[in-house]
Amino acid sequence: MRGPPALPAPRGPSAPPAMFAELNELLGASPERPDAGQFTLLRDTRTDGSFLVHHFLSFYLRAGCKVCFVALLQSFSHYNVVAQKLGVSLAAAKERGQLVFLEGLKSCLDLLFGEEEQPGQPSPLQFLSGGCRDLRALFDFVRESLAAGDPCKGPVLLVDDLSVLLSLGAAPVAVLDFIHYCRVAVCYQLKGNVVVLVHSNEDSEDEENELVVNSLCHHSDLILWAEGLATGFCKDVHGQIKIIKRLSLRQAAEQDQVQTYQYKIQDRNVTFFARGLSAAVL
């Protein structure tokens, strides 16, 4: 599929800065009726795909879903400041109980330097301190935090950077098991969604990471693949995004639908355009 079909109409400056409206149109999603049972993989190559995480975080919070955000890479204040730019307050969502935020950097410090923990409440990052090598504690945390929610809207699990788990010494199989369990619990039992970010690089030597990325690609319903431009850095085009809708998962006869756009990240928004149609070029 070469030519992208219809481009979203340009937004006026009056549009509210909630999420990236253009991306919603490309995906055919709206916060009024979020999908259910979807597994979305965010994948970045030679660039930073964290803008997609911020989009989905604000999208699902706006949609009123209960969100469990496993943030392993950055601090709460970072996500909070960016979310405010997108028109969502994480602190308020946390207070309402809509958002359960696991700050990996902080709970890792608590685990290593903190006082003796209570035996009934193991830390979600238990696997760090040895003993059990699996991610059962993390899964239990996810399940408990999403179990009690609004039953009419499916809960959402969001993981910023699954690759960090590998860096922390979790085995690739343990990571895949974790995602599998989460998928069964969140997507099928609770009719919710799972969104996961991974890094990948074709010429990477990180075989463990490639194993995880490939097998997740195989199972996901939707893949958003942000790539840095192959020809190098450009000021006006920050990269290109492949939107792969895995129709073949639903029906055997269908072909996967692939759309490719280029994008430019701005202070509060991301604009998408067809390849070669950047405003700076035209």
Binding site: R46, A230, T231, G232, R275, G276, S278
Partner: peptide, 17 residues
């Protein structure tokens, strides 16, 4: 050299835009 920062020029034929 100028391909710089992480992104390596892949072949001479490829043009992004």
């Amino acid at each position: 050299l100028s391909s710089g920062c992480g992104a390596m020029a892949i072949g001479k034929k490829h043009l992004d835009f």
